[in-house]
Nucleic acid binder design. Structure first.
Lengths: 188, 188
DNA sequence: GTCTATAGCGTGATAGAC
DNA sequence: GTCTATCACGCTATAGAC
């Protein structure tokens, strides 16, 4: 793996573990096994390297969501699969957590890929709900956009509950609760 | 207001805005208009002062939740009121955001009040749901604990969605979506 | 393209005057 | 009880050798 690749991967890990404010270039360099010069040769500085790392993580997350939510199965099944997909719950969401980072929120450049990812996944869920509604799997009074926001919020908030208690149980409980509310009217 | 009071209040504000890792004693002292000595006279250091600040915020949050969720109205109305209560959405949850702070999660002492608050509010919602279930307002197959987790997760995750987009709209959409799923079977 | 050395500043904490 | 001075260390960035 090239040095710039190792820098990006190390940054991705550290941003996930410690956020942007909590991640220092020094820690990145140590993890990547590189010197100061390498980082400032390939990137303009910490924000530039972080942007490359965030973009890659964002792309991965969108791809995973698309694979499940625009994949095979009934609308309810796809949402269920997405909610129940394997997750490192206690690590939290590598993109969602950045919204609590003051320096990320203060920078339009760093916030952009975060916003795009959240919006994209929310729309994928919304479309799936609309599809299920047309098929009669979901009640006609449900709004796709709103349910999409509720589903994604449950996931993002589930991480908060789990990390507060130090156990994934609360995340799983929230997902089960939401699924019980979404249970289709017609069996599929 | 006493110096130690001003220190706690300044810390509460900064923890809300920037989290634990992003908050320096220097910034706290500047905001409180105090010198280094004052802080180290009243508190053992940054973690000790942060603990006092977190405890106070946690107590406030629990009190607000209790006032609404253990107050008057039908179970659905109380949950609706709690979900729709006035919030500074873009500032996020002063307690929930701490779960994304690596140093808070790494310290059992700092995490404890966060965990207690989240658990307490989740239980308040759970009890309210159980009450509504007994009254026939909610479907009998719903589980109070699970719905409690889903409701609190929707709030916590709603902050994530809102902060990502820079607008409270996504929070409101998620709340409306959840409320549409919770709509009581019997009119109240 | 990578390294080390250094800069200038901020951090969290301590010492000791008042 | 509050202040300023100081400490050792870490941060982000730059310079310049190799």
């Amino acid at each position: 793996m090239s040095t710039s690749e190792r820098l990006i991967e190390s940054t991705r890990e550290l941003l996930w573990e410690r956020g942007y404010v909590g991640t220092s270039p020094k820690a990145i360099l140590e993890r990547a096994g590189a010197g100061q010069g390498s980082m400032y040769h390939h990137f303009k500085g910490k924000p530039d390297l972080a942007l490359a790392a965030i973009r890659r993580t964002a792309d991965e997350l969108c791809a995973t969501a698309e694979r499940v939510l625009a994949g095979p199965g009934t609308p309810y099944e796809r949402i269920e699969t997405y909610l129940l997909r394997e997750r490192d719950v206690l690590r939290g969401c590598p993109i969602g957590r950045l919204t609590m980072d003051p320096d990320v929120i203060a920078s339009d450049e760093l916030r952009a890929p975060v916003d795009e990812t959240i919006t994209r996944i929310r729309q994928l869920i919304a479309k799936t709900v609309e599809e299920g509604r047309r098929q009669g799997q979901f009640a006609p009074e449900l709004d796709g956009e709103e349910i999409g926001a509720a589903v994604l919020a449950t996931i993002q908030g589930g991480y908060v509950l789990a990390r507060a208690s130090g156990s994934p149980a609360a995340f799983d409980a929230g997902v089960r609760g939401l699924l019980s509310l979404l249970t289709p009217r017609t069996s599929a």
